[in-house]
């Protein structure tokens, strides 16, 4: 195990989940998304599972979703109870997104029986079901089972590639798989007629603001022919993570929203055909991507709007006094070799 993995594992050593009710999902809600080119309501369920296998082993440097997991086995019955609870709030949205804070296709999180039962129920009403999984669980066998259930309905898997750069993924993110693993999973999905949504991280730890922009733009360029959708995810500082450890010591600053806009603008130019969306968790807060406070909500609105309409013109009117500070950050941060991680707050 690498030193970085060891460190990520140790951060969770004394962790005990706050909420211990295995019968209720973490959250569920309805939000806007795009389905077949139209803006529709989408229903979101976050299941509380035993947790991401990778997180239980060591985990990624920025991911604190394990904070929502049980860290112990959850019976099939309880998982189905969570589903029932969620379905009480379901009002027939055509698009359903399922999160587990791990991998929906990982049998140790959700047994095939449960998985099938959930999907069975959903495809009765939904036209598109979206789940998440690490590439190692994306296999022909599993997709065959799923396709048997979903039939002609759209089945999408979101996977956290984070970056196309293996070095960054290994030494800054501790993701535990390679770009090739991702590409293989993409092939398997294509073969089984499933869609791929790829999460691209903005601002892993250890990268400068500028490196992070280049990393994200470069990643989107490399995956534009592989993925159906890109979901750009600026890091937000989640508890008990390496990023949190650094942030508390003022050695990490979440991305500027200027950077996010820059990535979206540049990527849309070069990868015009692929849909690029961006939900900014914790945006505008001190733990999330933010600019100077003054302009944050304006930026977040523009980015949300872009996610739905894919029109970069929405960014044309954005302006703020903090632009110069961001440009300074981009221009000289690496001259500080770590000293200038947060030049102006």
């Amino acid at each position: 195990m690498s030193v970085l993995s060891e460190f990520c594992r140790n951060l969770k050593k004394d962790f005990t989940p706050k909420i211990k009710d295995p019968t209720r999902p973490v959250r569920c809600w309805s939000e806007k998304d795009v389905l077949a080119g139209k803006i529709v309501d989408a229903f979101v369920i976050i299941f509380r599972t035993r947790g991401c296998s990778w997180a239980l082993n060591s985990g990624c440097t920025m991911c604190g979703y394990f904070n929502d997991s049980m860290w112990e086995r959850i019976s099939d019955e309880n998982l189905l109870k969570q589903f029932e609870t969620a379905m009480k709030r379901y009002s027939g949205e055509k698009f359903v997104k399922i999160f587990t804070s791990g991998s929906f296709l990982d049998d140790t999180e959700i047994k095939p029986r449960v998985r099938n039962e959930i999907l069975d129920k959903l495809v009765e009403t939904a036209d598109k079901v979206s789940v998440e999984s690490r590439p190692e669980y994306i296999t022909d066998d599993k997709l065959l089972d799923i396709k048997n259930i979903s039939q002609s309905k759209t089945f999408e898997i979101g996977t956290g590639l984070e970056t196309a750069n293996d070095f960054v993924r290994e030494h800054a993110i501790n993701k535990g798989f390679t770009f090739d693993d991702y590409k293989n999973a993409a092939d398997v999905l294509k073969k089984n007629d499933c869609e791929l949504k790829t999460y691209v991280l903005v601002k892993p730890p250890f990268l400068t603001e500028k490196e992070s922009i280049e990393d994200a733009v470069g990643t989107i360029e490399k995956i534009k022919t592989i993925t159906d959708v890109v979901s750009l995810n600026p890091t937000n500082v989640q508890r008990n993570t390496l990023v949190d450890y650094l942030w508390k010591r003022k050695q990490y600053r979440p991305a500027w929203l200027w950077s996010v806009v820059e990535i979206l603008k540049r990527s849309k130019k070069t990868a015009g055909n692929v849909r690029i969306k961006c939900d900014i968790a914790g945006g505008g807060g001190i733990r999330g991507a933010h600019n100077c406070r003054e302009c944050d909500s304006k930026f977040l609105e523009a980015i949300s709007s872009f996610s739905l309409h894919q029109d970069v013109k929405i960014f044309d009117d954005l302006d703020c006094n903090c632009y110069d500070k961001w440009l300074d950050q981009i221009d000289i941060e690496n001259i500080g070799f770590g000293s200038l991680v947060n030049m102006y707050g």
Binding site: S2, V3, L4, E6, F7, H171, P205, F206, L242, Y245, L246, R249, Q251, Y252, F337, G338, V341
Partner: peptide
Amino acid sequence: MTYPKDLPDELHLS
């Protein structure tokens, strides 16, 4: 390559 200052020495050494 440098890691942020307050990470433990083992990481810097790595």
